[in-house]
């Protein structure tokens, strides 16, 4: 009788523990935090538009990408709640991003390792394509 009571009470306390764990894991982010993140995203949008008008040559795209990655981190962390996510969800996202970087890195390294004569036939489907260092014709080519 007393054993049974013990078992029952153990069961209840376990269940309570599980329920309380469940609630504590579902963090909710407060409305002021959301508004602050939105404000930061707006500021960064203004920064990226403003910086685009500064002449940095081809370095402009690098600045734009750094700002974009900062914005993306804010969205993922707060709007997508990854701050309170499990390590499994983080690992899944990071592995996807790494795969894309590998794809881009290998493709662009392949491109870099070719000279213009080699890669031109590869994109020869585009009519009138010239190597990037070729002079620009004064008139558009005749049909």
């Amino acid at each position: 009788m007393s054993q049974q009571q013990t078992r029952i009470s153990t069961g209840t306390s376990q269940q309570q523990t599980r329920i309380s764990t469940g609630t504590s894991q579902q963090h909710t982010i407060s409305v002021p935090t959301y508004l602050a993140v939105f404000g930061a995203l707006m500021v960064l949008t203004a920064v990226t538009v403003a910086s685009a008008h500064v002449d940095l040559g081809h370095f402009n795209i690098v600045v734009a990408l750094v700002v974009a990655f900062t914005k993306a981190t804010l969205v993922v962390t707060y709007f997508m709640h990854l701050r309170y996510g499990t390590n499994m969800t983080r690992a899944i996202l990071v592995s996807g991003v790494i795969a894309v970087f590998l794809l881009m890195g290998i493709a662009i390294d392949d491109l870099r390792s070719r000279d213009s004569q080699t890669y031109m036939p590869f994109i020869g489907a585009l009519d009138g394509v010239r190597p990037p260092d070729a002079p620009v014709p004064a008139h558009p080519p005749e049909e």
């Binding site: 996202l93 794809l103 493709a107 662009i108 990037p132």
Partner: peptide, 30 residues
């Protein structure tokens, strides 16, 4: 949550291929 993030990781790959195409040609014709 796990299932949704798995789907989103595949979406990252899906759009990643298009972004890779963009960067490939950006490096060719900046």
């Amino acid at each position: 949550t796990l299932g949704m993030w798995l789907f989103l990781a595949q979406e990252v790959l899906f759009f990643g291929a298009v972004f890779a195409t963009y960067f490939y040609y950006f490096f060719l014709f900046p």
